[in-house]
């Protein structure tokens, strides 16, 4: 997923769409908005980011899971949790440097699924489909001709906490 931080206005439509689409319990969220400001007046810079699970290529949450509930879904490399297999040990919550997971009130570890149920039908994730500024682009990073790759080739971008070594798959255009 590629997110253009110049287009994001922090309207939280993506948050509401995710909660509605995935019936996320009240008081919890699978995606959220972060505002990062830096510098000193009058040269302050602001970045608005829609954040969620980074569906890392090297996912520590999957490596530490004792039951195999956390797994990488193929094809696509989406990190998912099989709810029925999760014992709620919370090791994955501790392993995620992005704090992207939480414990669903039903007892299992919960997080963004990239709306895999929609993607498998050829649709975009709910957050992408509702974004009023079209700041989010979802696609196949392994396809050199995909729109996400074209965007990454044409713009400066960064990921979150690359130093954690998890190889996150969400890129922010700056």
């Amino acid at each position: 997923m590629v997110i253009d931080t110049h287009k994001c206005v922090g309207c939280k439509d993506c948050v509401v769409a995710c909660k509605t689409e995935n019936s996320v319990p009240e008081g919890y969220c699978r995606d959220w908005i972060t505002e990062e400001a830096r510098g000193a007046f009058p040269t302050i810079q602001l970045e608005l980011r829609s954040e969620r699970c980074n569906h890392c290529e090297n996912p520590p949450c999957v490596h530490c899971c004792p039951t195999g509930a956390s797994h990488v879904h193929e094809p696509g490399g989406v990190v998912l949790v099989t709810h029925e297999k999760c014992i709620g040990c919370k090791a994955c919550l501790g392993a995620c440097p992005y704090d992207a997971r939480f414990i669903n009130p039903e007892g299992y570890a919960d997080k963004c699924t990239f709306c895999i149920h929609r993607v498998e039908k050829g649709l975009d994730p709910a957050c992408v489909s509702v974004c009023p500024t079209h700041c989010m682009t979802f696609g196949d990073i392994d396809d050199p001709l995909s729109k996400v790759n074209q965007l990454l080739a044409s713009r400066r971008h960064h990921t979150l906490l690359p130093e954690a070594g998890t190889k996150p798959k969400i890129y922010y255009l700056t």
Binding site: K12, V15, G27, Y28, C29, W32, I33, T34, E35, E36, A37, R38, G39, A40, E51, K90, L93, G94, D99, R101, F102, I103
Partner: peptide, 21 residues
């Protein structure tokens, strides 16, 4: 100066992680 503001609010995780007692 760097300032971070987030709307994330998951119990046991935010604002500080406390998953294990």
């Amino acid at each position: 100066m760097t300032e971070l503001f987030t709307l994330k609010h998951n119990p046991l995780v935010d604002p500080a992680m406390h998953i294990w007692a």
